[in-house]
């Protein structure tokens, strides 16, 4: 199967001050794939996403998006190119209403009809948000905030969605709902790079996965193979 590569990281080194957080990450994400990054706390999963979206600048290595080197580009330019990053902790604008949060997601949309159409689609995916459209973002529950964060990111109509810990802090029922939505969004043709601590769920929805350990990729395979892998099961799926 020849899959077109959308996102390609090559030998990426990122630092937090003197801390060497990414030690030469190389990976690819193909069009229409769900790829997951799993690993323990501090393995560099979020750092990888932040480096892709331009929040952090890598010291060495390249990030290529659709064949173009996007290193050193400004965060909002990268976002405008079609990479949408839903960061850890959702980062809803707490004092803006649900509607305003969504409208901000459509910042780069010049055509009002298009913006309206995307808004309709967001409400179709997340009917709960429609009920709370005039409510302040900060008054939503954790699950609703996560839905809003994803809906807001979809307003930019991205090619690639970077999701950082979408299941964090949610009740099990909601975790399932969020993963269902991720699958659904993927069926709409979006490429997804998913960072998760809940490796079991992540490997269930993903096509491929990379295992990160202290800033390095130690394993990469199809999601099925990773889920069956002895060492992965021991380290990340909670098996003795």
């Amino acid at each position: 199967m020849s899959m077109q590569t959308v996102l390609e990281l090559e030998n990426l080194h990122t630092y937090y001050g003197h801390i060497h957080a990414l030690k030469g990450i190389s990976m690819t994400v193909g069009r229409g794939e769900i790829v997951t990054l799993i690993g323990t706390n501090g393995a560099g999963k979020s750092t990888t996403l932040r480096t892709i979206s331009g929040v952090l600048k890598p010291k060495r290595g390249t990030v290529r998006y659709q064949g173009k080197d996007i290193n050193g580009m400004r965060v909002h330019d990268i976002a405008a190119m079609g990479i949408s990053h839903v960061p850890e902790g959702r980062r809803i604008f707490p004092l803006l209403t649900v509607l305003e949060n969504l409208e901000l997601g459509g910042w780069n949309v010049k055509d009002r009809a298009v913006a309206k159409q995307r808004m309709e689609r967001a409400f179709e995916l997340f009917p709960r948000l429609k009920e709370r459209v005039n409510q302040k973002g900060g008054t939503l529950s954790g699950g609703e905030q996560q839905m809003l964060a994803i809906a807001r990111a979809l307003m930019t109509d991205p090619d690639v969605l970077l999701l950082d810990e979408p299941s964090m802090g949610l009740a099990p029922v909601l975790v399932e709902a969020i993963f269902d939505i991720i699958t659904e969004i993927n069926k709409l043709g979006k490429t997804i790079l998913l960072v998760e601590q809940n490796a079991l769920m992540a490997l269930e929805v993903a096509h491929r996965g990379y295992v990160l350990q202290t800033g390095e990729i130690v394993l990469s395979d199809s999601a099925k193979a990773l889920a069956a892998d002895e060492s992965v099961r021991k380290a990340y799926l909670g098996e003795a």
Binding site: V75, H76, R91, L95, E100, L104, N108, R152
Partner: peptide
Amino acid sequence: RAIRATSQDQTMAGLLGINV
């Protein structure tokens, strides 16, 4: 609206394509 968003969370505003 973009100014208000920027004042609440600059990084997030940038991630949505707003030139902070």
